[in-house]
Nucleic acid binder design. Structure first.
Lengths: 124, 124
DNA sequence: CCGTATCCGATAGGATACTG
DNA sequence: CAGTATCCTATCGGATACGG
């Protein structure tokens, strides 16, 4: 049996449960990636960027990300109400650890891509 | 607006959809982490390690991971039937990119941890 | 030991409409 | 623009039992 280059120490993954419940969702990682890549985004801006997400799941996901402290929400004016979502410092840290994986995945090329196109910035 | 250290180029996240549909699930990341950390695992071994997963979701997840080429399955004997799940080369690559994130998350400490305890190796 | 089969409840998430 | 409110469906995921 191959001896794998193991995780540094005997590490407990208990704390993962909580965050994975939020992160391991359909849109969470993409939202973090996009916010990280572009800085700040409004609700519908984000919605447009994601391409085919309904307001409810987007709202839910943002609330969850906010709750666990990865995303912060700023309300600016009142008419028209302007809202900006951005990453918290913790969100940035996570994002930094996340990017290598996302980049690898996007380069590696998932052959099956049913559903709607999603882009970080430009779309071919 | 803060100028973020962006993702290398204008990168298309289209290919993400397919793989995210698989890895952004409740158990997928943990399975990859565990297989990477311990090399090979049988079905029930994995089940025990995950702590509180039912056979069906485990079976489903493994099939999906196999389908997209991250996990391979070896059938050895016939009595008793011995099966070993392990990471494919691609699975290893993904795992390498994944570990920093998982380690960060586990160190960062998710305060809320409802549900069952999950461990990579030892459990306190 | 390795799963599949079945059933079932919870919930994620899409569509749409509508309000502040 | 920024969501909330419904509604509705598909799927996920747990429990249990059983077969190879």
């Amino acid at each position: 049996m191959k001896k794998p280059p193991a995780i540094p120490e005997d590490i407990c993954f208990c704390p993962l449960s909580g965050i994975l419940d939020v992160i391991a969702k359909k849109w969470a990682l993409l939202i973090i990636a996009i916010l990280g890549n572009e800085g700040e985004k409004g609700f519908n801006e984000l919605k447009r960027e994601l391409g085919c997400i309904s307001p409810k799941p987007l709202s839910d996901t943002l609330k969850n990300l906010e709750r666990i402290g990865l995303v912060s929400k700023k309300v600016l004016g009142t008419s028209p109400p302007t809202v900006k979502y951005s990453l918290t410092p913790e969100g940035w840290e996570l994002r930094d650890h996340l990017i290598p994986m996302l980049v690898w995945v996007s380069e590696h090329g998932g052959q099956d891509m049913p559903g709607c196109p999603i882009r970080a910035r430009k779309h071919p």
